[in-house]
Design a binder for these strands. Structure first.
Lengths: 120, 120
DNA sequence: CATATAGTTAACGTATCTGTTAACATTCTC
DNA sequence: GAGAATGTTAACAGATACGTTAACTATATG
């Protein structure tokens, strides 16, 4: 059943994705790993602000620092593999529960007693 | 392409889902529509606190008030149909971009020039 | 060594979020 | 109509999030 995957991480992931700039950063990093500076340009944000957003994404387990480049000053970030698994798992559960509810309602609506009542 | 669905609503939805209690409320409501009081018991929370959470979920477009019951004091809440579509759409985009990146990397790793270099 | 570059962290002010207590509005019941 | 039941909103206090400025670390370059 795996009822409760790390709820804290799940909350952190959702919270991290609740910011448009961070979502855009994710998209950029999904296209290809990038330096922090590149992200700052694309999202049009000060390096300090961006660094904080990167920390949020890191702590949520969504991105990670990659190996060092030739220039050891730059830091390359990339999307963590399987980063979105907890989120997608939760969304899948929701999807499943939704289908069940629809099915239950359909069965109820088509039940003989109810249809008889409606005709009356 | 539908590049930018309502970003504000998307942010609101993610933010709403970033709270474990609210996620639990969603699960309860997915099982079946319920009164506010029922939710308060299940989530073990004061009616006031719960009411605020309900407002957050409402403004995010995730839940909605349903028609009035016999007792007009109670308010029945249920999950809004298609509520999670924006979220799932964004997740699908991410999934797609992730596959593309994997594919691109694979093509790069298997390129003749690179394999030749590696053998050397 | 001096300076510039790339990035992070610290400190601060502001804004938003959360829960609690208190006050309100509605509707049911006697 | 008086009072209980069901919820919501208002006002307050504490915690957290965000951006900016300033200070800091580490590496590169002259």
């Amino acid at each position: 059943m795996e009822q409760h995957p790390p709820a804290l991480q799940l909350s952190a992931a959702f919270a991290a994705l609740s910011d448009a700039s961070r979502r855009e950063m994710i998209r950029m990093l999904l296209h290809k790993p990038r330096r922090a500076g590149e992200l700052a340009e694309c999202v049009d944000m000060s390096p300090q602000a961006l660094s904080r957003h990167l920390r949020v994404l890191r702590r949520a387990g969504l991105v990670a620092e990659q190996g060092i480049e030739r220039d050891a000053r730059v830091r390359i970030y990339s999307v963590q593999p399987n980063a979105f698994e907890p989120v997608q798992q939760w969304m899948a559960q929701v999807e499943d529960l939704w289908r069940r509810q629809l099915h239950a309602f359909k069965a109820f609506a088509e039940s003989p007693r109810r249809t008889a009542k409606l005709k009356a």
